[in-house]
Every structure is written in structure tokens, then in C-alpha cells.
Design a protein around this nucleic acid. Structure first.
Lengths: 333, 333
DNA sequence: TTGAAAGCGCTACCAA
DNA sequence: TTGGTAGCGCTTTCAA
């Protein structure tokens, strides 16, 4: 007869150790309210080890009525260095506070539909980057037991805590800088990659705002992330009369800079270029790329916000503006 | 009296609709084995909507005895464009096969300890990038009900399916190419960022292998990802007598290329440079960067492997070598 | 110091 | 066509 290796339960451990399931639970959880003899303790541990017993998280949290799971949607677009580092840091910090961070790959789901899917997992907290979660979604999550919903992105949502990433400030920085450098006909790159609008449009608005009331003009420059698109844009450049460009970020800036240089346009002589994100590559370009340095919150700060919110679910939603932007002037502007 | 908004359960829905919990379950799951009258169906849906009912995933899978969760450890280091795209694709493909992809942020846990933590979630399949999972870990996962464990990385592990990423092939490509271009004193960059050894060392070994039996020499070049480190390496360059370098990847190549050029060393005249990953930035450098193009498996292929393995858990572990490497020669070599 | 048993939310078998 | 109910694995109260 073949023994089917069913996954061992605490009952199996109890049987093997010759005790009750209750005792097993006491021992394995180090329940302090109950004193178990050292002999029993040993027998239980031994039995658990022998069977390779692993507790069943779902059963446990079902019984407990709550979990320590912090849920984040997995980013659909590959994240950059900057944001990736932030995520790692956050995971570490939450882990140290004894939360279990889980990224849920709900690719394809959107807005409140996604919220439903997340709610099925009954997380104690939900962290939502970007826009796309409505008040409805927040309500669903809270009704499903989420004690904290934190959005990280451009706007705030009724009922949720918010880390406001003020991408307009990035644009304002760039716009003001270019204007201060004497530029007046300013282009702003709008990246073609989908999913970037949430950042690109506020940045554009920021440039507009910085130049409001001046004699400078702002021109939108849609640009796909390809050499061909950049070359085409560069070819049209002389006719456009633009003397400066905020290139959305450092990578687009590099793309555009190269195309402009290949076209014989001098930087910063003919055109001032500024990027954003302060990536290493900007320092490696010639001329060195000016950029807007973006200061994300520390993962620890966000982790602490989550923890506070979980401990006091009734509290007023906190709203923090957390994105510092400052110009790093190098040689391209 | 304040009404505490307890999370609604299927019992609440049943009560409101005036039916039994069984009926609620039948309706909401569209159970085909049972026919429910349209009127009842409507009442149940209405009640569920009104209460904002969301099923409890843990309870469901506890009852069912299995889940559709595919677990992956969340990458500790920020992933590059290439691998990020692969992950997104994989998530999409698994989602289409009706699996739920979950990335578990077990930062700090290692090896078989991490396997325990994953096993608590009772995933139907586990996908482990990189090394770091031992046969013990695989056994724990399987005993906990995982029907498929797939490693994606440099080596294979007893009992697990493997997608072998042959990073030696990347090094072999680069080495053979440089040798064919007439270079004999070849440097290989070893990146300083932690976590990259699993890729860097096989690539180095590949270069060594490609040059075995020739008169070429291989020199290890540890390099931190900073301008200072690169400048220092470039300053020592003339004394080293190296006439070629495989720079680990395109980003390190860019860093090093710039430092060499700043030092007055000509590329490819004095030194041939080749990177890897075939990133856009390589095309934007001058001279254009030669690179090793790395062909990752499609997310769909991996998703199908997972699905096969889940359907036939007894099957022999599949081992695939899935990393295609080919040189893209541009101007730097 | 240990055991018996209830019950978390859900599904599926069997009976009505 | 619908309802009663057992039981998934676990923790915790109450009793012994």
C-alpha cells in the first residue's frame, strides 16, 4: 500500500507526540498563559520536526480573525532604480515591524474591481501606488477588515491615508530653472510609454505653473522611447525654435540629447536640457546632464505610518506631501 | 448603540436574502451542478451587493484544500528592465491561466528558512529566482502541498523543475567575440553591488572557458558602481596593459567607458568594450556599445511549465536551459 | 499541566 | 429547487 504523503497537520503532530492538539498549539506558539512541562515541550517539538510540520497560515488567520498581511499591487510596469530601492526599503521596514508584505499581481484588474480581489485576501493594510483606486474601492477594503489603506501617488482618496507625491513640484523646479537660465521657448517631453501619464501630466502642469505670467511658452513634445522617434523629433527641432527642454526623466533626456547632438544641435548652447531622477547615467553624459533630484520618503517612514494606522484605525486619515524636488545643475542647462 | 461594521459573511447575505448559506454559495459561484431559480439568484446577488460582500479567500481555500496561488519571493535587489519585463509578462500569463501570482517579501529570510515561511501560505506552486533554495526547502514546500517548485537561475535543485539560466554562455559569447576581434589581454568587470555574484561569477567563468587553450589572459576587475571607482580603475588602466573588457552589463560598461574616455583612452582603438543586456542606452553611447543580447524565456513558456507541473505533480522534473546569448556588435569592439 | 470542544467562513454532500 | 450540516486546520476558553 502506497502511503500518500498528506501534508501534516497539528493533529498529526499531537498524535505522534501523544498529546492533544491544544498542547501542540501551546508549545509551538510559546503561549505564555499556559505552562507546559519541559518533557512534553520536547516531545512536541521533536514530533513537529520529524513530520516536517508547517502551520497553515490561512487556517490560523481564519481562526484569529485578522492577519498581519500588508498588501501591495505588484507594479505593472518595470519600476526604475529609484522606486525599486524605495520598495525594498519599505518591505524591510514593514518586515521588522512584523508585517508580512505581499505583492499581488492583479495585472489586468482595474480600480475598484482590483480592490475586490485584494479584499478577498483580508489584508490588515493595503498600500496602493499611483492613482486608480476610488473611494468605493477604499470602502470595500475597509469593510473587509483592512485597518489601513494608504495611497502613494498624485492625489488623495476619501477615507484613505495619502502620501502625496507632488510631481507638479518636479515640473515647477525644472521650469523655474530653465527660465532662470534665460530660456523662453520651453519644450516638455511627454513619454510614450503607457502608464507614465500619472507622472508626466503633473510634471507638465508644474512647468506651466512655473512659467505662468512670464513671456515664456510651453510646448508639449510627445516622444516614444525609441531612437527613431527621437531622431524625428530632433529633425523637426530647428523649425520649432525651442531653446530648452524638460525631458521628463534622465532616460528620456539621454535619448533626446543624443538625437539632438547627432543633428548638430549644441547643448546647452542651442538647447538647454534637464532631466529628472538624478540617475547615475546623467553624470556620465557629456555634457553632464542637469536633473531634478527627487527625494522619496524613507521606507521606514511609510512603514511607521502604516503601523500607526493599523493600531488606530479610527484615526483621521493622514495626508503627507512627501516628494522633495530640487535642481541639480550640471552642464546641460 | 453604535453599529460596528463587521465584515459581512455569506451568512449575512443569506439572512438578508432569506435563503440558506448553501444557496448563497451556489449562486455566487455559479455552481452548475445545481439549478437555482432566477428569482432567488437575483435576491442573492442583490443582497450581496447591498452588503458589499466579498468572499474570504482563506476560508475558501481552507475548505477546498488547495489554492491557485503561485508564490514568488519578491526580488531583494531592484530588478533591471529586462528581468522586470519578464516578470510582468509571467504574471500576465499565469493570470490568464487563472493563477494568482503573489510576491512574498521575505527580505531577511534565507534558504530553507524562507521555504518554511512560503510553505505556510500553502501555494500550489513556487517560483524561485536565483540560487539559495536547497533540496530541504524543496521538500518542505512539496510536503506542504506545493505541486510544483520551479527554480529559475544558475543551478538545479533536487526535486524541483529548473529553468537553467546559463550565464556562462553570456561570458563565453563575450570572450569569444573579443578574442575573434584580435584582443588578448581581457578584463572582466566584477560588479561591487551585492547580490550580483550569482550572475557575475558564471559570466566570468564563461569568459575563462572561451579563452581556455588560447594565448589570451583574463583579469578580474572588481568595480563598484560609482564614478570614483571607475575613475580609479581607468587611471590604473595603462599599467594593466589590457586591450579589452567585458563590463558585466551595459550599465557598468557605460560607467567604465566614460572613465576610460576621460582618461584619454580610445575605444575601441586602445580598448575594446562589450556589455550585456542590450539596453537602449548602449545604442546611445558614442561609440555605440557592443553588447551580449540575452534572450530570456517568454513569460508564457514559464507559465505553461508551471501549469503542466501543477497538473502532473508526479512527473519527472523538467530541466530547461533557457538563456540564449548572442553578440550584438556595434562600434565599441 | 493537559484535554475536549467550539467556531472562524466557506463549500459540497445528502436529504427534503 | 433549496436547506441542513460536516469539516477544512487552527487557537482558545473552560473543565478536569
Amino acid at each position: 500500500m502506497v502511503q500518500i504523503p498528506n501534508t501534516p497537520t497539528s493533529a498529526d503532530v499531537a498524535r505522534l507526540a501523544g498529546v492533544s492538539r491544544a498542547t501542540v498549539s501551546y508549545v509551538l506558539n510559546n503561549t505564555s498563559a499556559v505552562r507546559i512541562s519541559e518533557a512534553t515541550r520536547l516531545r512536541v517539538h521533536e514530533a513537529a520536526r520529524e513530520l516536517g510540520y508547517v502551520p497553515h497560515a490561512a487556517a490560523r488567520s481564519l481562526r484569529a480573525g485578522h492577519s498581519r498581511m500588508v498588501l501591495m499591487p505588484a507594479p505593472a510596469i518595470p519600476v526604475g532604480h529609484l522606486y525599486g530601492r524605495f520598495l525594498s526599503e519599505l518591505q524591510g521596514a514593514l518586515g521588522r515591524l512584523d508585517y508580512t508584505v505581499v505583492q499581488y499581481g492583479g495585472a489586468g484588474l482595474h480600480g475598484d474591481e482590483a480592490a475586490r480581489a485584494w479584499a478577498e485576501l483580508r489584508p490588515v493594510a493595503v498600500l496602493v501606488p499611483g492613482a486608480g483606486l476610488g473611494p468605493q474601492g477604499v470602502a470595500v477594503l475597509k469593510r473587509s477588515g483592512a485597518r489601513a489603506v494608504v495611497t502613494v501617488g498624485p492625489g488623495r482618496v476619501e477615507g484613505a491615508h495619502a502620501l502625496l507625491m507632488d510631481h507638479e513640484a518636479v515640473g515647477r523646479c525644472a521650469g523655474a530653472h530653465l527660465h532662470a537660465r534665460g530660456r523662453r521657448r520651453i519644450g516638455v517631453v511627454l513619454p510614450g510609454e503607457p502608464g507614465l501619464e500619472d507622472y508626466a501630466l503633473p510634471r507638465l502642469a508644474g512647468v506651466r505653473e512655473a512659467l505662468r505670467g512670464t513671456d515664456a511658452t510651453v510646448t508639449e513634445l510627445p516622444l516614444a522611447y525609441s531612437e527613431e522617434a527621437a531622431a524625428e523629433l530632433a529633425a523637426r527641432w530647428p523649425a520649432s525654435g525651442l531653446d530648452a527642454v524638460f525631458a521628463y526623466n534622465d532616460e528620456y533626456a539621454m535619448l533626446l540629447m543624443r538625437a539632438l547632438q547627432d543633428e548638430g544641435i549644441r547643448i546647452p548652447g542651442d538647447v538647454a536640457v534637464i532631466g529628472a531622477d538624478d540617475l547615475m547615467l546623467g553624470r556620465l553624459l557629456r555634457p553632464r546632464l542637469s536633473t531634478v533630484h527627487i527625494q522619496l520618503p524613507s521606507g521606514r517612514d511609510l512603514a511607521e505610518l502604516v503601523d500607526r494606522a493599523v493600531r488606530d484605525p479610527g484615526g483621521e486619515p493622514e495626508v503627507h506631501t512627501v516628494l522633495g524636488a530640487s535642481v541639480v545643475r550640471r552642464e546641460s542647462s
